[in-house]
Design a binder for these strands. Structure first.
Length: 290
DNA sequence: AACTGACCCAACCGCATCTAT
DNA sequence: TATAGATGCGGTTGGGTCAGT
């Protein structure tokens, strides 16, 4: 027995959206907010599948979308992130405000793939299509590529070498993510899955982008800045909440110094956000700049 | 003017994952 | 703990547009 369809296909419109449908969707979401996509079409008076409404809103109608061509800078960000994450379009889109995963995916397939090929790089692996050799210092010898090409190649190689791994970049990324998840507090896995529900939070630690620079000290500095996220755990059975345990992620992440950590001040900050855990606890988040 | 093929992108589909009960 | 429903994600498709012939 298969799954039930997400909507009554016999009574739903398909294909391009009309202006009237768009306006109905916009009006409804303005009034009631996003969510409950399954029931939205009926409530908004639309003969559309809930998934279709969600896609239309996210990819086209959302007010914070950036329209227009991708900039050279955006191109490079996409290339860099794709080399690290692969076809994780939603993660890549998360780093490009105003761009959607669908947009980036389309752009990748129509423009960037070609761009990489013209640079002599395989779009999937980001490795040079022709073989390259290294001299004794580890520099890449391939006169057919420009300096920029060599930088791209070198970026990928440095990632792999940093881990002393012979696997592919994707494998390396995956390994790094797994290792970090295991080392971190288990609740961090939940943070990762909740990340998109709390876009105001910097949760870079949870998606664990791997090292992408050469200077290890610089890397640590950057990561430390990004990952100054801390949380506290409350007993939700007690009202008002009573702090039962405080865990400082600055420490959990393995940083030697806890400088800059002021977790104790969190309770007094009314800009903080809580998140329910299914084990009866709350995670308590504080914006980075507070 | 008609045809053709390449290109682009919105939208769909199926599967994976999350969540509530 | 198991299950079904809801949501999210990535691959793919279909149709509009445009340039070349």
């Amino acid at each position: 027995m298969g799954r039930s369809p997400c909507c009554e296909k016999a009574h739903t419109n398909k294909g391009a959206w009309t202006k009237e449908e768009d306006q109905r969707l916009i009006n409804y979401i303005r009034a009631h907010g996003e969510g409950c996509w399954r029931s939205l079409p009926k409530a908004a008076g639309l003969l559309r599948c809930g998934k279709s409404c969600r896609l239309r809103w996210i990819n086209y109608l959302r007010p914070d979308l950036k329209r227009g061509n991708f900039t050279e800078e955006e191109d490079e960000i996409i290339i860099k992130l794709h080399s690290l994450l692969g076809n994780k379009w939603s993660l890549i889109a998360g780093r490009l405000p105003g761009r959607t995963d669908n947009e980036i995916k389309n752009y990748w397939n129509t423009h960037i793939k070609r761009k990489l090929l013209s640079r002599g790089l395989d779009p999937q692996t980001h490795r040079p299509i022709t073989t390259t050799t290294k001299n004794i210092n580890g520099d890449i010898n391939n006169n057919s590529y420009s300096d920029h090409h060599n930088k791209q190649i070198s970026d990928v190689n440095s990632i792999e070498e940093a881990n002393s791994s012979s696997g592919t970049t994707e494998e390396f990324v995956h390994q790094q993510q797994k290792v970090q998840e295991e080392e971190f507090h288990p609740e961090l896995n939940l943070i990762r899955t909740k990340k998109q529900n709390y876009p105001e939070l910097n949760l870079d630690l949870s998606i664990s982008l791997p090292i992408q620079c050469y200077d290890q000290n610089e890397i640590m500095k950057q990561e430390e800045e990004k990952q100054k996220v801390s949380y506290q755990v409350f007993d939700t059975a007690a009202k008002p909440p009573v702090i039962t345990q405080t865990i400082c992620l600055c420490y959990q992440l393995g940083f030697q110094s806890r400088e800059g950590c002021n977790c104790k001040a969190m309770m007094s900050n009314n800009r903080s956000t809580t998140m329910n855990l299914n084990n009866g606890f709350h995670l308590y988040f504080r914006p980075l700049d507070s």
